Amino acid sequence: MVNRLETQLIPALFEALQNDRLVTIATIDHETGGPMIHAISWIYAVDESTLRFAVTSRSRMIENLEKNTAVAINIIANESTYTITGKSNILSKQEEPIPLKVSIVEVHIEEIRDVMFYGAKIVSEPTYEKTYDLVAAEKLDRQVIDALKKGN
C-alpha cells in the first residue's frame, strides 16, 4: 500500500482491527485548537469503512469530538504504519451493562495512507500488558468489545 491512498480497510488492516490492538488517535483539542494524541486499545473494525472505539466517558477525547468530529487513527500492522482519517459520531456516552462508564464512538473512514518512511518495515509490533486485575480486565474487555460489535 506504499504511496497509495485507500478509502477502505485492506484485508490485513481489517483483520488486525478484529482484536485488542494498541492505536493512537489524534483529535483537535476543544480548548487550544491544537492536536491532541490519545492511546487506546478498545477498537474494532465493523466493516471495511467503519471503525468503532470505546473510551471512558470522562476522556478529554469525548469533549474534543463533540466540538470537532475530525479524527486520525494511527495503527502499526502489516509490517507498516497507517493513518486512517475520518469523521466521528459519538453513539453513546454510557454503555450498559459495562460497569465502567464508557462512550462508544463510530468513525466513517474517509482515507487510509501508509505513512511508513521509505525503505523500512516494522519488524515488531508494539505490545502492552494490563496492570490491573487480569480477570477483571478480561471481563471488561469482553463487555466493551461486545458493545463495539453491537453499536447502538
Rank of each mutant, 00 (worst) to 15 (best):
F14V: 06
K101N: 14
A120E: 02
V107F: 12
S92Q: 08
E48N: 13
E31A: 09
F117N: 15
S57I: 06
A16S: 09
E106D: 04
L13N: 06
V102Q: 03
N68Y: 07
T83N: 08
K130W: 07
K67F: 08
I90N: 12
M36E: 13
I37A: 13
G151V: 01
E96S: 07
L22T: 14
E15C: 03
A120C: 05
G151D: 08
P99H: 13
I75G: 00
N19V: 09
R4A: 10
S59D: 07
I84A: 05
T50D: 12
L17Q: 01
A12Y: 08
N152F: 07
L17I: 00
L134C: 06
L17V: 10
A26G: 07
S80A: 15
T83K: 09
A39F: 08
T85V: 13
V102F: 03
I122D: 02
I37Y: 00
A120P: 00
V23H: 02
T7Y: 06
E125R: 14
M61V: 00
G151T: 02
A137L: 11
K101G: 04
R21Y: 04
N64W: 00
A39H: 15
I43Y: 03
K87H: 14
N74A: 15
I73S: 04
A120N: 07
E48T: 05
A72Q: 02
V115M: 01
H38P: 03
A70L: 15
I28Q: 12
T32G: 10
I43K: 11
Y82S: 00
T69Y: 03
I25M: 11
D141I: 03
V135S: 10
L100D: 05
M36A: 14
L65S: 10
V135L: 11
A12T: 06
D29T: 02
Q143G: 11
V135N: 06
E48Q: 13
E96K: 09
N64T: 00
L65Q: 02
K67H: 15
K87C: 04
T85A: 05
V107P: 09
S103M: 05
H38E: 05
F117W: 10
Y82E: 00
S41R: 08
V23N: 07
G151N: 08
T131P: 03
F117A: 03
W42V: 11
T50N: 11
V2L: 08
L51P: 13
N68E: 12
D133W: 04
N68F: 06
A54S: 11
V23L: 02
P99V: 14
